[in-house]
Design a protein around this nucleic acid. Structure first.
Lengths: 141, 141
DNA sequence: TATTGTTATACTCTATAACTATA
DNA sequence: TATAGTTATAGAGTATAACAATA
């Protein structure tokens, strides 16, 4: 393995490690509201007043569309999101946050930034650098 | 939300996004060998000639010990790992890679560093910086 | 008494395939 | 024909609680 690959490999291992380690802290935010990690993520992705087609959500989560059906079923039954048929294409259903969902989302975001989280152990400079690198990685438009 | 928290929050969202986006690429390495993401991670964590107590694994994965039982059952039934009773404390079982497991681990690490992965889109400097920040985050000893 | 690992249970997440309704 | 979403199914991941063996 050449040195360049080694860095990528190490980064990957650390990212995985961070993800699993993070779950120990997630309960203090997510499970407090009885949300699974992926439900937390969906709540983050679903911005207020920005309806999201279910197929877009499946793309973002890199999972099959059939999973999104169940995921949304559970969130809808809790009154967090709502399905609406798209006027342009009646095959498409878009997701919207309910008032309850929007409220929970705000609470969740606030919890996630609590001072006890590992992320706040980083200096401001490190946080900004991390954000910049991750943006390049995720390639957001 | 104050500006410092905002960076931590953004970083968290991007990390989640990266993790889920990554699953689209994982199949090319993990699923090719019929390994789930968590099984890949365990294979990484389990270094050759470094036995790992099951309770340590549960800690690292931040999950309940009962989950590790099933996880290891599946990996053991495929001949990737082996359970051994610890000589010091007969309650403890340590995990070892089998020869098959070690071979698969090597193949997996090689795949993970293939040039097509998002991580290799980063410059060398960025990769090193990312590793450094993640190390601070994961707080490895 | 406390700890390690297992078992039993229930629920969530996930992929595949077959289906519907639209396009 | 192709696409968006659903249903059915099977397997894996997860938490909780109760348990056996050991410390």
């Amino acid at each position: 393995m050449n040195p360049a690959d080694q860095d990528a490999c190490r980064a990957w291992q650390l990212l995985m490690k961070f993800f699993f380690a993070q779950r120990a802290h997630l309960p203090s935010s997510g499970a407090r509201f009885d949300l699974s990690p992926i439900q937390c993520h969906v709540l983050h992705l679903l911005e207020p007043r920005r309806p999201l087609p279910m197929s877009r959500l499946a793309d973002t989560l890199s999972c099959d569309a059939s999973n999104v059906t169940g995921l949304v079923d559970r969130m809808e039954s809790r009154g967090l999101v709502r399905r609406r048929s798209s006027p342009e294409d009646r095959r498409v259903k878009v997701l919207q946050l309910t008032a309850t969902g929007a409220r929970l989302r705000t609470q969740l975001l606030r919890q996630m930034t609590g001072g006890s989280l590992p992320l706040s152990r980083l200096s401001l400079d490190q946080q900004r650098t991390l954000v910049k690198i991750l943006e390049a990685l995720v390639d957001e438009k």
